[in-house]
């Protein structure tokens, strides 16, 4: 299983990678949308964690691009700046929402949720954690 993490904070990418890493998992890290799209040309990812704000684009735009080139990829949007209403605008191709800062349990829950197929996508809710 291939997973893509897109965030301009290398430390955050590192921490997220450590949280979700398992033996059967192959994880790519991108610091901006351009390098993420380059990676997408070479690999097919099951899940992509995308930060809402990127130096050269924003998370929604990147999510749309990912969905276009790889519709099978489930997308989890990460953000430190959110309102609950923002989630209602969430596009159907965004599989989950991860609020920064996040708990390991939330990350793992959301990962399982997006992996367990389309039928539960409609009931996606953001996992707001405040630690």
């Amino acid at each position: 299983m291939k997973i893509l993490i897109v965030d301009d904070e290398p430390d955050l990418c590192w921490a997220l990678e450590r949280m979700i890493r398992t033996n059967d998992m192959w994880i790519s890290i991108a610091g901006c949308s351009t390098s993420a799209m380059n990676l997408l040309k070479q690999h097919t990812y099951t899940v992509a964690f995308v930060d809402a704000i990127l130096p050269d684009s924003n998370g929604f735009q990147l999510a749309r691009h990912i969905h276009m080139v790889s519709p099978s990829t489930s997308i989890v949007l990460m953000s430190g700046y959110y309102y609950r209403e923002d989630m209602d605008e969430a596009h159907t191709h965004i599989g989950g929402f991860l609020a920064k800062p996040f708990l390991i349990s939330d990350v793992r829950t959301i990962l399982q949720q997006v992996l367990s197929a389309d039928q539960i996508r409609q009931e996606q809710y953001p996992c707001n954690t405040y630690c």
Binding site: Y81, P101, L103, I104
Partner: peptide, 20 residues
């Protein structure tokens, strides 16, 4: 918005590191 994002990034790193 900008401030929240900017502060929550390091907070997210701190929280994640602590949990690890």
């Amino acid at each position: 918005g900008g401030i929240a994002h900017e502060i929550r990034n390091p907070l997210a790193i701190i929280a994640a590191s602590a949990q690890l």
